[in-house]
């Protein structure tokens, strides 16, 4: 049976935790807004680049090593998780989805992790991680994305992986993100049907054809990666925001319950003391009467 003082101490402890979770909730909310703005800002560029790629591919005869389909002997999977925890089921959801994917492969799968949580999870289970990258900073700088892109493209071109897939948390809304696994390499040039109908022009290209692809395709890979990283960041912050809101709420509830218990104990103690005083007084009065 905890004493009243124990309960007071627990209330204080829970109150401190609540302050922390509430602060984390607000920070996550602010970072989520920034990540959403980043995702939004990248859209025109991504769209235009996709249009160019569509047009180049539609112009026909697009040939480039990054477009080349070969017999699949080894698959590479890039798993984007976060460096930090306390984000609810965010990392667990992606890792589960990635696990399903790996289980379905008929060929060996090599894993590249982005974000500490993914690497730690896999290492703890004895899974070899071919390569690890820390989660990019909140600015998602191009150098950070470029390093990952370079490695992936290098591994594909060298034949280490015959396909590369990307697992990340697609951001739908604050309350919803969906873990997805999408194909990254070989690149599948988007087709006209995928984009909104738009004004088309018969483009000329400089440099012509394949030489242009040499510049275009790595850029396109970078855009896909960048967007996945930014969306993953938004999903992470949203998950953390929701988790910390829940933690703050249950802390409030716990404080309420503990306070109630504390008050009851205090009341009981007072009642007990009163009873003792009264019965003591009674006993004294009785004794005096008898003496008289």
């Amino acid at each position: 049976m905890p004493s009243a003082r124990d309960i007071r101490r627990r209330i204080r402890g829970v109150r401190n935790i609540k302050q922390v979770t509430r602060a984390m909730n607000m920070i996550a909310a602010a970072r989520l807004r920034r990540a959403q703005a980043k995702a939004e800002a990248a859209r025109p560029y991504a769209q235009r680049l996709t249009e160019i790629l569509t047009d180049v591919a539609a112009a026909g005869g697009a040939r480039h090593p990054l477009l080349e389909r070969r017999e699949v002997r080894r698959v590479g999977l890039v798993i984007i998780t976060s460096d930090r925890g306390l984000a609810g089921a965010f990392n667990a959801n992606i890792l589960r989805e990635a696990g399903h994917f790996v289980a379905q492969q008929r060929v060996p799968t090599g894993i590249i992790t982005v974000g500490k949580k993914g690497r730690d999870f896999l290492r703890a289970r004895g899974v070899t991680v071919d390569e690890h990258f820390p989660q990019p900073s909140r600015d998602v700088r191009l150098e950070e994305v470029g390093a990952i892109r370079k490695r992936i493209i290098g591994d594909f071109l060298s034949g280490r992986y015959d396909q590369v897939w990307l697992a990340y948390a697609q951001f739908i809304s604050v309350l919803k993100s969906v873990p997805v696994v999408i194909p990254l390499l070989p690149l599948e040039p988007p087709t006209e049907a995928a984009g909104a109908p738009r004004q088309r022009a018969a483009y000329q290209f400089e440099p012509a054809g394949d030489a242009l692809l040499e510049t275009l395709l790595p850029q396109y890979v970078e855009v896909v990666l960048y967007r996945a990283l930014v969306e993953s960041l938004a999903s992470e912050q949203a998950a953390r925001m929701v988790a910390m809101k829940a933690a703050t709420d249950s802390a409030s509830e716990m404080i309420e319950n503990l306070t109630r218990e504390y008050n009851r104990m205090r009341q009981d103690a007072i009642t007990k003391q009163l009873l003792e005083v009264v019965s003591g007084a009674d006993a004294l009065a009785k004794a005096e009467q008898e003496m008289a």
Partner: peptide, 19 residues
């Protein structure tokens, strides 16, 4: 600055993609 040299784009230029 095109990959194949400087180029100029005036009004009414034909549809083009330059690296």
């Amino acid at each position: 600055p095109g990959q194949e040299g400087l180029f100029e784009v005036l009004v009414g230029h034909a549809p083009y993609v330059f690296a």
